[in-house]
Amino acid sequence: MNSCDLMKDPMKYDAILVAGENEDSHNVCNQYKALLKLNDQYCIQYVIEALQKASAIGDIYIVGPKKKLMSALRKTPIDFNQPKKIHFLEQRSNLLENVWYAFLKSLPPLNGRKDAEIAAFVNKAVLVVPCDSPLITTHEVEHFIANCDLNRHDYILGLTPEKSMQYFYPSDHKPGIKMAYLHMKEKNYRINNLHMVRPARVEHRIHINKMYEYRYQKQIFNMILLVIYLLRFQKLKNFRLLLGLQFSLLSARLDLPWFTAIFKRWVPKKDLEKAISHLLNTRFASQEIQLPGAALDIDNDKNYETLKSEFENWRSYLADLNE
Rank of each mutant, 00 (worst) to 15 (best):
N2C: 06
Y13C: 08
A15T: 03
V18R: 04
H26C: 05
Q31V: 10
A34S: 09
D40M: 06
I44G: 04
K53M: 15
D59Q: 14
Y61R: 12
G64W: 05
G64Y: 06
K66V: 13
K66G: 02
K68C: 15
M70V: 13
I78W: 01
I78V: 10
D79G: 15
N81G: 04
K85R: 15
L89G: 05
E97R: 15
V99H: 03
V99Y: 08
L107V: 07
E117C: 01
F121I: 05
A125T: 02
L127Y: 02
C131D: 15
C131I: 09
D132H: 02
T138A: 09
T138N: 03
E140H: 11
V141K: 14
E142K: 02
H143T: 12
C148W: 04
N151S: 06
I156T: 00
T160F: 03
K163I: 11
S164W: 00
Y167W: 15
Y167D: 12
H173A: 12
H173F: 05
P175I: 05
A180F: 14
Y181G: 06
L182C: 11
M184I: 03
R190C: 11
I191L: 08
I191F: 06
N192K: 07
L194R: 00
E203T: 14
R205N: 07
I206F: 14
I206Y: 13
H207Q: 01
M211L: 14
Y214D: 08
L225M: 03
V227I: 13
L230V: 01
L236W: 09
L241Y: 13
L249W: 03
A252M: 03
L254Y: 08
I262W: 03
F263T: 04
W266V: 02
K269L: 10
I276L: 15
F284E: 01
P292C: 02
A295G: 12
D297H: 12
D297T: 15
I298R: 08
D301Y: 09
N303D: 12
L307Q: 06
L307V: 11
W314S: 13
D320G: 04
D320N: 07
L321W: 03
